[in-house]
Design a protein around this nucleic acid. Structure first.
Lengths: 144, 144
DNA sequence: AGTATACCCCGGTTCTCCACTGGGGTTTGC
DNA sequence: GCAAACCCCAGTGGAGAACCGGGGTATACT
């Protein structure tokens, strides 16, 4: 019941990209990884996954980097986590429960999954950026 | 985001034990494992964990077996899953998030965890037994 | 008493996945 | 043309999941 490193790294990277979306200037892996203490070669793989899922765009060559593919309020946390964790492709080998007890357990677990997904769907990258800004604002007020 | 075998096996076993709680007659590993298609030596380990957590009681020797330690409506699914998955002892190495972005992500994830736990807490073993019975009742009606 | 029946404990094994590293190749701006 | 970036693919080390097996111990029944 804990967030995997993969998803956390991916979210951190996208949160870094979010403020840069307006300018249209790409951000490099090195920048993100040093900013968020993420191993850069690992982050590269995650960004490749996000690109294949259509969440970010990449620009190759010198002065290249990554940009969000669409506005930060149009990307939900569910979009990110589901593509990184890859639980879209889980419909293939759904094991058939053999007893009636197994069925009710699966039902409850479905309810759990749905609740988790609902929360991830209601937050967008923009929401998190706003939350972070608000939190920093509070910190400044306490500092004064 | 999927239920582990361990937790599912444990829940199935406890659902088997629930109807026998009233009689006070213990149920053997072999019975449970054959009823629910669970490898018996593996189930043994899980029941040992449940026993150490105080959810079941064991009776050794001939005509021994396992019983629930308390009434089936006093055991929530959260009790079971948390002890099997062992996420009580997670408070020790809570990694300190280094950036403000990491903090907001952890906050959201905390919300997700809480929602999942709330659902697991609201269901008891008795609830699942009732659901199973209700479902079988419906099946019979369709059969007629 | 003796024996069969069950739990008990501990250890090993295979497999998969995660987190991470490394070696090249290709595109692009200056 | 060269350096800066992405791209792809491959491998590695560790951890945990899902088992299996052997030997020990308590208990009921005869």
């Amino acid at each position: 019941m804990d967030l995997s490193c993969k998803s956390e790294y991916a979210l951190l990277a996208l949160l870094e990209l979010s403020p840069h979306y307006a300018s249209g200037e790409p951000l490099q892996i090195r920048q993100i990884s040093s900013q968020q203490n993420i191993p850069d070669r690992y982050l590269e793989q995650l960004l490749a996954t996000l690109r294949r899922a259509g969440l970010v765009k990449s620009q190759r060559g010198a002065r290249g980097g990554y940009l969000l593919a669409r506005d930060p309020w149009k990307i939900s946390l569910y979009d990110v986590v589901s593509c990184i964790e890859g639980f879209d492709a889980q419909a293939d080998v759904t094991k058939v429960p053999d007893t009636s007890e197994a069925v009710v357990i699966q039902d409850v677990w479905g309810e759990v999954r749905q609740a988790a997904e609902a929360i991830l769907q209601k937050y967008t990258l923009q929401d998190l950026v706003d939350q972070r800004n608000a939190k920093q604002q509070v910190d400044i007020m306490y500092y004064i």
